[in-house]
Amino acid sequence: MNKIILLTAATMMSTTVAAHEQHTVTFNDENCEVEFQNDVRITPDNLVITTASHATAEITSQGTLTLNGDTIPLNQQQQAMLTQYSEQLRGRLPQVANIAFEGIKLAGVALNEVATTFNLTNLDDIHAVINDFETQVHGTFYQQGAFVMGKQTFDDFGSNFDEQFNEKVETVIKGAMMQSIGSLLVTIGTEMSNSNGDMSAFEQRMEDFATQIETKVTQQAQAIEQKADSLCGEFEQIAHHEAIVANAIPEMSAYQLFKFK
């Protein structure tokens, strides 16, 4: 009987986490037509694009362009195009970090749902993992008063974040279950008592609970995915505009942030 109870609790935990993992938001979607090829650093005063060879293109808030320290003369039309391009990057790139934050918070919602239902009292480690990853995301994208984005940041975040997050979440779930084993047994025992000892009724209640949480998490995860897909489309539009800017200002052709696959 104890094995059945523990297996049921573990299954509930796994189901909830799986509901999140199946819809983990990533930013290297194969369906996206563009990808980063350079890096950018954005502050209130300027926007600096850096290539793999460490060449730099600085666009100031006034619309002036400096390449590797040399100011490039621009006519009024070129300056207007460059300013619009800069504003597009300022408005869209930070949304990547916002979507990442939403994904982390969604995992916290799912874990709290399960913890509340099974009366898990030792949640400090779970909350610590959520907080640690929020700090990690913030530190990845916001550095020394600037927003940083591009190929290196994008690649590192996309390849490492999901795996690390899932591993740590699974570890703290197991730890919380072991530390709260007494509460788990009491809670599940109460559920069985309310079902008058009918295991089939108990199992149905557990399945309904799993479905309820999975549905809730899935719906929110899909909404986040839609935001990511929409953002990818906006990046494609910026990439098209970027190509137009590079055509109008040939010196910018070596500093394009995006490339089409």
Rank of each mutant, 00 (worst) to 15 (best):
A223V: 10
I249H: 00
E251S: 05
T190R: 15
L7N: 15
M13V: 14
Q204G: 07
Q164A: 14
V114W: 15
V172W: 06
M199L: 15
A107D: 14
Q78N: 07
H138T: 15
Q136L: 09
Q77R: 09
A243M: 01
Q220I: 08
Q22F: 07
I130Q: 06
D29G: 10
A239W: 04
I244C: 10
Q62G: 05
H20Q: 15
M192D: 01
Y142C: 09
K174L: 07
Q256R: 11
E113A: 12
I188K: 09
D29R: 11
A239M: 05
S86K: 12
N68E: 12
M81N: 08
L82G: 02
N131Y: 06
T116H: 07
T190W: 15
E242S: 12
A57Y: 04
F165Q: 03
R92Y: 13
L93V: 01
L89F: 11
E207L: 10
I99F: 09
P44Y: 06
I238E: 01
A10L: 14
N38A: 08
Q204T: 11
G175P: 04
F157N: 03
F258H: 03
E251A: 10
H20F: 15
T66N: 13
R90T: 02
T24W: 02
T171Y: 14
T60E: 10
A201C: 07
L257D: 04
V25D: 02
T64V: 02
D132M: 06
L111R: 04
T64G: 03
P94G: 02
N112G: 14
V96E: 12
K216R: 14
S61E: 13
T187H: 01
F235G: 03
N194V: 04
A228Y: 03
I4P: 08
Q152E: 11
V114K: 10
I224C: 05
T171L: 13
T51N: 01
V40T: 01
Y85A: 06
Q95D: 09
F235W: 04
K259F: 11
F165V: 05
Q256G: 02
G108K: 05
T135L: 02
D70P: 12
P250R: 00
M199D: 11
Q222S: 11
K174V: 01
T187V: 07
A146N: 04
